[in-house]
Design a protein around this nucleic acid. Structure first.
Lengths: 139, 139
DNA sequence: TATTAATAAGGAATCATTATCAGTATAATA
DNA sequence: TATTATACTGATAATGATTCCTTATTAATA
């Protein structure tokens, strides 16, 4: 059915993308990663960044976050954890609360889907944007 | 700061969009809603559908789902509930498990964000796609 | 080292969504 | 009811994110 997956070469581009993504605690979008990587590889193409993020996500090397907002975000930490997204600026951070492994079982009994996993996304206002909002009130 | 919100007129287009969205239990995308509405209003524009879905979401009449996948989805049921998305066909269904209101408080203590809410999205394979996968194995 | 398969870069193409604008419909009120 | 102000529509253009395509490179290995 599926063609055999080609072996992944560890090219310079791929390595740098992975390194830069691992450096940050945020969850950058493809074009943010492109900007980060371009400082070290000025001739890299945006398409290369997209292709490799996709390939590495398929191989479980990184996580592609299917969160709200218009752009997909990527994460070098692959173990399950939850996220919080700023409703104002769109930034995504990790949330340090334990993962509810029981949720998947609970969902299995409530649904005819074959459950694969779950993700919790909180919405809020980040500290920076809280400040900006306060300033706006003062004007 | 913000201009006063204009009053919302209940135009035919708006009414039909709301009616069609209320008819279905799924969570259609804007273009799916466009197709549904066009059977009754053949001359409606796609932009009108987008504009009105956005306005009605701002007014709390419907829910704009910030779920994974490339397209936004809309929901006529505005009370908080969780969703499950098919990893294969992208369909989104409701999940009948109770909402964890305590989660928001828990997140508040774990984060410096001002928490507004949360959403849980399960991933799985819908019954239809399970069938298709079984058929593929037999070949 | 020669072969070949995966990969890169660059640009075109696509898809979803938003913005613009000119004309129309509706509500407010004179 | 006529006038005026404003919301709204439909068509189309513009934008933004992502994917696709083509040709040239590059890494693995025979």
């Amino acid at each position: 059915m599926n063609a055999p997956a080609p072996m992944l070469r560890l090219t310079t581009q791929r390595q740098v993308i992975l390194e830069e993504l691992s450096k940050v605690k945020t969850h950058p979008t493809a074009s943010e990663i492109y900007d980060m990587v371009r400082k070290r590889l000025p001739r890299i193409g945006l398409g290369t960044v997209y292709r490799n993020l996709e390939l590495m996500a398929e191989n479980g090397m990184i996580l592609k976050l299917e969160v709200g907002g218009t752009q997909k975000r990527f994460d070098a930490t692959t173990d399950n954890h939850y996220h919080i997204r700023c409703a104002r600026c769109g930034k995504v951070d990790d949330l340090e609360i334990p993962v509810f492994n029981t949720l998947t079982e609970e969902a299995s009994t409530a649904s005819s889907y074959q459950i694969l996993g779950h993700h919790i996304e909180f919405t809020g206002i980040c500290p920076e944007c809280q400040k900006i909002q306060e300033d706006e009130y003062e004007e």
